[in-house]
Design a protein around this nucleic acid. Structure first.
Length: 322
DNA sequence: AAGTCTTACAACCGCCAGCTC
DNA sequence: AGAGCTGGCGGTTGTAAGACT
């Protein structure tokens, strides 16, 4: 791996390091310390620039470097720290003894970033992406197809895929709404509309039939979770849609329950219509048994994850998507 | 078996902050 | 004050190795 040996304009060697060069560098630093990196190459008998020597030492040759695969614990630490620190690789590396910023950066770019995207989270904000609902069934179907083909009929596969996609999308939707950063009162009209459209199109894409609730409420019926949605769209009536926001009402029901379960969260989350917005966005959300929903779904458990403001849980796939 | 695509990661590049003179 | 130097950092590149067709 790496690059072919080459020399820059000043005749200094570039590209991958040979074992002999490594040996010279290690020997010199062990005996004298690195001192001035600029002066080191000449003193150590290397035809390299000081910067190249420093990188080779700090990223590869340093004796305290831990090599090999990242453990689950390290992976979780990186996720947690990245949510707080962002791409501050050196700061993250400071919390992982023996790991270099370069190694963590590479691991992030090749593994964790993709993993978050596949789970439907924005790797930069660590928040659920609201634009992925329509593609979820496809993603999950790809992940499950091979395994399922070995054991089930196409009809069974279709039913299971629909259920899993619906659960996943629902959980992400609810987690997004639950996140304190998504202050429901501060939802922009377009965000709310997009969210509703996502839920609505998800329902359509999955072929789930709405069940009428109270004769008027489109009721998205999911295997473990039920979400009644009342909304008015597009409400434009010839006016700008932005001036006529929809009304969103989401209530989570636990499996087997006929009525929503009261939760402390509900009391603190009910929004009061803001007088400054006319007509106001009125959004009420109650969530219960989110943990149950996780455990009864096929996500394979949940791993604790620290949002900057709150400890939430990322539902983890029990399988890799390739 | 051969060609193509994807993944992993070492190494490079450019920018910037801090220090010295 | 500001020019030059140095080291550190994050982003990007290039390619070997493995996977896939």
């Amino acid at each position: 791996m790496g690059r072919p040996p080459s020399n820059d304009d000043s005749g200094l060697k570039k590209g991958p390091w040979t074992p002999e060069e490594d040996q010279k560098l290690v020997k010199y630093i062990q005996k004298h310390g690195h001192g001035s990196w600029r002066a080191l190459p000449k003193l150590a008998g290397l035809n390299r620039c000081g910067k190249s020597c420093r990188l080779r030492w700090t990223n590869y040759l340093r004796p305290d470097i831990k090599r090999g695969k990242f453990s689950q614990e390290e992976e979780q630490t990186i996720l947690n720290l990245h949510a707080v620190l962002g791409n501050k690789w050196s700061a993250i590396a400071g919390h992982l003894p023996g790991r270099t910023d370069n190694e963590i950066k590479n691991f992030w770019n090749t593994h964790l970033k993709k993993k978050l995207i596949q789970m439907g989270f924005d790797p930069m904000t660590h928040r659920p992406r609201t634009d992925i609902f329509s593609s979820l069934p496809h993603l999950i179907a790809l992940a499950n197809l091979k395994e399922l083909m070995d054991h089930h009929s196409w009809e069974e596969q279709a039913v299971r895929l629909q259920a899993e996609a619906a659960q996943m999308a629902t959980l992400q939707c609810l987690q997004y709404l639950l996140h304190p950063a998504n202050n429901l009162n501060s939802f922009s009209d377009m965000e709310t509309i997009n969210l509703l459209n996502s839920v609505s199109s998800m329902k359509d894409d999955l072929g789930l039939q709405p069940v009428l609730h109270d004769d008027s409420i489109p009721f998205l019926h999911l295997p473990d979770l039920q979400i009644p949605c009342t909304y008015q769209t597009p409400l434009n009536n010839g006016n700008d849609i932005v001036q006529a926001p929809p009304q969103l009402e989401l209530t989570a029901f636990s499996q087997g329950e006929n009525s929503p379960i009261n939760s402390p969260w509900l009391a603190s989350s009910s929004s009061t219509p803001s007088p400054s917005v006319a007509p106001p966005v009125t959004t009420e959300t109650s969530i219960s048994n989110l943990g149950d929903a996780c455990s009864t779904s096929s996500f394979g458990g949940a791993a604790p994850f620290a949002w900057p403001e709150l400890l939430l849980e990322y539902p983890l796939f029990d399988h890799e998507i390739s």
